[in-house]
Deep mutational scan, measured.
Amino acid sequence: NPITQSQFVPLGEVLCCAISDMNTAQIVVTQESLLERLMKHYPGIAIPSEDILYTTLGTLIKERKIYHTGEGYFIVTP
């Protein structure tokens, strides 16, 4: 039996792509809307728990890849 190979993409990278897409579409990015986006637009991805999502978003903020305001999460533009 051949083994199907899937590509590994770090969660942080997927979140940045999803946040960027949602920002472009002017969709408010909350943790809930982000999870919905992942389920709908990234089939096959293991949906992270709320704790993992929260921690990963926190890491992306520390790395200055995203920022959070009262209006949601946004990509940091250079």
Rank of each mutant, 00 (worst) to 15 (best):
E50H: 15
I27R: 04
Q26F: 03
T56I: 06
L57Q: 01
G72N: 04
A25S: 13
G70Y: 12
V28N: 09
L53Q: 02
A18K: 01
L35H: 08
T77D: 10
L35R: 13
K62G: 07
A46Q: 06
P10V: 09
K40C: 08
T56H: 13
S6W: 04
E71Q: 14
A18W: 03
I52A: 11
L34H: 00
E32G: 07
T55E: 11
V28Y: 06
L53M: 10
E63C: 09
P48I: 04
P10S: 14
S49N: 14
L11E: 02
Y67D: 06
T24L: 10
M22V: 00
K65P: 01
V29S: 03
L35V: 11
Q31N: 11
C17E: 15
P48S: 03
K65A: 03
C17L: 14
H41L: 06
I27D: 04
G70A: 10
A46E: 09
T77I: 05
I27M: 09
C17Q: 15
H68D: 08
E36H: 06
Q5L: 11
T77F: 05
L11W: 04
Y73S: 01
A18Y: 07
G70F: 07
H41G: 07
A25L: 12
I45R: 07
Q26S: 10
V76L: 11
E63D: 07
C17N: 15
G72P: 00
E13T: 07
H68P: 03
T56F: 05
G58V: 14
T77K: 12
E13G: 04
T30P: 00
P48E: 09
F8C: 13
A18E: 10
P78G: 13
L35S: 08
A25K: 15
P48F: 05
T30Y: 01
E36L: 09
Y54P: 05
T24N: 13
P78V: 13
E50I: 14
L38P: 01
C16T: 13
G44I: 04
G44Q: 14
I61A: 05
T4F: 10
R64K: 14
E32A: 11
R37C: 04
G72Q: 10
Q7E: 07
A46M: 09
I61C: 10
E50A: 11
M39L: 09
L11I: 09
T69G: 07
E36A: 14
I3M: 13
Y54F: 13
T30M: 01
I61M: 14
G72E: 11
A18F: 09
P2E: 03
I47N: 03
Y54N: 14
T4Q: 09
Y73A: 03
I45T: 14
Y54Q: 11
A25E: 15
Y54S: 15
G70D: 11
K62R: 10
E36P: 03
P48A: 04
K40D: 14
I27K: 07
N1M: 10
Q31R: 13
I47S: 05
I45K: 05
P48D: 05
L15S: 01
I61T: 07
N23K: 01
E13I: 03
K65L: 06
P78H: 03
H68Q: 12
T59H: 11
N1V: 05
T4C: 12
H41K: 10
E36I: 07
I61V: 14
L34S: 00
I27L: 09
N1Y: 05
C16N: 04
E71A: 09
D51V: 04
F8H: 11
S33V: 07
Y54H: 11
A46L: 09
F74V: 11
T69H: 07
I27C: 04
D51T: 08
Y42M: 06
F8E: 13
L11F: 08
P43D: 06
V9P: 15
I61S: 05
P43F: 05
Q31V: 14
P10F: 09
R64N: 11
G72D: 07
S33F: 00
M39V: 12
V14M: 15
K40F: 09
A18Q: 03
E13C: 03
A18N: 04
P10M: 11
E32T: 07
M22Y: 00
